[in-house]
Amino acid sequence: MLLSLSIGKYWAIFKVSWENGLVYRVNFLVWRIRSILGLLLVYFIWWTTFQNQDEVFGYSRASMLTYIMVAAIIRAVILSSRVMDVSTHINEGYVVNFLVKPLNFISFYFARDLADKLMNIALVIVEILLLVLVLKPPLVFQTDPLILSFVALAIILGIVLYFLFAFIVSLLAFWLENTWGSFFLVFVFLESLGGGIFPIDILPKTIANILLATPFPYFIYFPSKIYTGTMEYSQIIQGFIVLSIWLFGLWLVAQRVLSAGLKKYTAFGY
């Protein structure tokens, strides 16, 4: 009974967020068009690269273009998020609502995030299908159920990892007047090192290994690379271990930072 009540609350938040997303249709559409433009640039960089050669950095044309397309879908799933609103809500005092309502701060934002992601997933799949029809790239279709299960698990854990990461950055608003600089820095690292533009393993081995110890490659690179079927099982397991350590660590940090932030927070105004 208690559990169903609790789920019901967050289901209601999910529904409201979904409907909210549908209200601002133009903004949403523009966000999707912008994603397509970004994808076209990356796609054509690699398409041109393979014009005069069959293999680059150990990738065939099909495996690289598949990686790019899958990375675009995963990018839309993992990076579409409303969690940055947390910092605005802290700065504007809206956070007071959570102190008087029977809502879990983290679960509330996670429910909103899921609604946003569902909307993005629906559209990105249509977009990629259209692009595949227009561009006709050679693609690798993964059929191994075990690999597909690994991809699904990596995406789910990636969603949680990104949520926790962005959530912690947002919580800095308890101490900072402006967190946009921090977000900008996070996005720069995500864009450059997340694996959306190029797979991390094309970098020199030492740099790639250092990066694989950070959380960034686990947002886009890790699930996309697993999908191409070019990762050994030992590497996949190793990736999941690092990912789990980051998840556990960030979860602890998020709890601590939230608790410290709420203790420090001073509400004033009406």
């Binding site: 600089g181 921090s182 900008f184 820095l185 996005f187 720069v188 690292f189 864009e191 450059s192 090192l193 533009i197």
Partner: peptide, 14 residues
């Protein structure tokens, strides 16, 4: 400063 560092990192990374 953070924006400046971010812009420079983005530029250098690409």
């Amino acid at each position: 400063l953070v924006f400046l560092i971010g812009k420079m990192i983005r530029f250098a990374m690409f």
